[in-house]
Amino acid sequence: MKKLPKYCIGEEYSKHSGDYFDNDKGEEIGIFGKAHEDAYNTYKIESLLETTKGILNK
């Protein structure tokens, strides 16, 4: 966990703003890469948001 603050505020990682960080891959703490394909599926995103709103409004 010593490197986590470096990933959060390190200047060399500033270009990764908004990128997916996979903490299960990489040698030490993780790597930047593509998220699961569902994260880019607008239909699934909208469906998830509607379901979440429905649950929160009960």
Rank of each mutant, 00 (worst) to 15 (best):
K25A: 12
F32V: 02
Y20N: 09
Y43A: 01
A39F: 08
S17P: 00
E46R: 05
H16N: 15
H16W: 11
S14G: 07
E28G: 06
Y20R: 14
L49T: 06
D24S: 14
T42C: 09
D22L: 00
S17E: 03
D24R: 04
H36P: 08
Y43P: 01
T42R: 10
T42I: 07
E37F: 14
K15T: 06
A35D: 14
E28Q: 06
D22P: 00
G10C: 12
L48A: 10
K44H: 08
D38K: 14
G30I: 01
G10M: 11
N41R: 07
E46Y: 02
I31L: 14
L49I: 09
L48M: 11
K25S: 13
Y13G: 00
E11G: 06
K44G: 08
E46C: 00
D22N: 07
H36N: 15
K34F: 10
A35P: 11
E46L: 01
E12R: 15
H36L: 05
A39I: 01
L48N: 12
G26C: 09
Y20S: 10
G26E: 11
G33A: 05
G10E: 05
K34D: 11
D22M: 04
F32N: 08
Y40I: 08
D38C: 07
E12I: 13
H16D: 10
Y43L: 09
I45N: 02
Y13E: 02
S17N: 01
Y13R: 00
D24L: 07
